[in-house]
Amino acid sequence: MDNTSIQDNTLIQAENLSMIYGSDHKAVDDMSFSSKAGEIVGFAGPNGAGKTTVIKMLTGILRPVTGRALIAGHDIVKEPLAAKQSFAYVADNPDVLLQLTGLEYINFVADIYKIPAEDRAPRVKDLAARFGMSDALETPMREYSHGMRQKLMVIAALTHNPPAWILDEPMTGLDPSAAYELKQMMREHAAKGNCVLFSTHVLEVAEKLCDHIIIMNGGHSLYQGTVEDLSAAHPGQDLEEIFLDMISYKKGE
């Protein structure tokens, strides 16, 4: 365990992460950032920028070619179980184990995280109510809409309430009320001294929600800092224009 990370309240730390798919496709190149307790960090970037690849390296799906990822001070490669106990992950694709009912899936995840029944019941009840899923929990997930599956993934992931949340495009498919609830919960979670890291294409969400924003393109970090600092450095431009400038988007092409 890396004690320096814990001492300065860093819950998610990426150090020089690089990833190569196949033999020569470099998806992420020398990516470093950190996320401290109390922060909401947003990943923004165009399709193929490398956001999901970074998240996959943080969550142990991919092993970085170089660098390391620490969650609550635990190296995800060297101490995978301790690291995985410390975060909740919502993948960008909610289509998993669709033959199970919503409740069966939540219980499965809760069993893996060894959440006692007395903690599990009120938390699941609360999360299901907040996301409007109470009446759907005993229905097989194959009968859910995409948005309902996404909500269920969020409920299952958040049932064990770890210090770090890592969410890959969590708003995709959510209805406005569910998106609002999730944003509220992200704020509440960070306010309790935890951290939330999420990727998004929706710049408005990043602008309103994030304490810290990381803009990526071509596997590189183009900007890391607060939204306010970014706006101050580009006077007269809104976030969308700044973002398009940064990724060298040329209108009309």
């Binding site: 969550t59 142990g60 995978p80 179980l81 995985k84 993948a91 998993v96 995280y113």
Partner: peptide, 11 residues
Amino acid sequence: SDREHMVTLPL
């Protein structure tokens, strides 16, 4: 298809 979900769990 469950691989990427399962490997992120503390198993």
